[in-house]
Computed example of a mutant assay.
Amino acid sequence: MSYGVSVALQSAIYQCLQSDAALNSLIGTAVFDEVPGGTIPSTYVTLGPEIALDRSDKTDAGALHRFTVSVVSDAPGFSNSKAVAVAVSDALHQTALGLSRGHLISLVFERAAASREEAANLRRIDLRFAARVEDN
């Protein structure tokens, strides 16, 4: 197994979301690796948890990275959050990300879960993707 592509993959995903015109029209540049302190935007996207599984073969070291991108919003209802989630999904759907190390074999959407965080009056949509990478 190789976890060596993980930083390159995360960086490419972040750059893809930061530069996507449709997503920018909805939330500007409110895409975070970590939510900043202080005043946060009403709606934002954050990179979340990741699990990496070995997918090496006889010739190449590789991994399957299952990662979450979350949409968080204090806007009422789910309509706004879902529009942002659609933009995230569209931006990453079969995107040919250029990695600084290794290369991307595939990037696919796996599932989404929408929830309310009542105590904070937030809506949250967690989108899970799977990226198959090789480190060669």
Rank of each mutant, 00 (worst) to 15 (best):
I40Y: 04
S70K: 14
V88D: 00
D90G: 01
T29G: 13
L47F: 11
I125H: 07
D90H: 03
S42M: 06
S115G: 12
F32Y: 15
A12K: 06
A75K: 14
C16T: 14
S25R: 13
A114Y: 04
A63K: 00
R123K: 15
R111K: 11
P49C: 05
A75E: 13
L104C: 09
K58Y: 05
S79R: 14
R123F: 03
L92G: 10
L97H: 08
L127F: 02
V86Q: 15
R123M: 01
P76I: 13
R123Y: 01
I40M: 04
S42W: 05
V71N: 09
V86F: 03
F67L: 10
A130V: 10
V108R: 09
P36M: 12
A22Q: 12
Q15R: 14
L17S: 09
L127K: 01
L104H: 08
L64M: 07
R55D: 13
I51D: 12
S100G: 15
A96G: 07
L92H: 02
K82E: 12
H93E: 13
A22H: 03
F109R: 07
S25E: 10
K82F: 03
I105N: 06
A114I: 04
S11H: 09
I125N: 07
E34P: 00
V133G: 07
C16G: 04
G48Y: 14
T39C: 01
L26N: 05
V45C: 03
I125F: 08
T46I: 15
A120K: 10
F32C: 03
G102C: 04
A63R: 09
L107D: 05
S19T: 15
S42H: 04
D33T: 13
G102L: 09
T68Y: 02
L104W: 05
F129C: 06
L53D: 12
V71H: 04
R132Q: 13
A75F: 08
A22D: 15
D90P: 00
L64V: 11
T68K: 13
L23D: 10
R111W: 01
P41W: 03
H65T: 00
A114G: 04
V84A: 08
L47N: 00
A130P: 00
D57A: 03
A83H: 02
T29E: 09
D20Q: 07
S106K: 09
N80G: 02
L23T: 11
S11P: 00
E117R: 14
R116A: 10
S100R: 03
P49K: 11
A85R: 09
V84Q: 08
A75R: 14
H65N: 09
A91V: 03
A120H: 05
A91K: 03
L92P: 04
V133C: 15
D20S: 14
A75T: 05
I27E: 02
R101F: 07
L104S: 06
A22L: 05
Y14L: 11
G98E: 11
S89N: 14
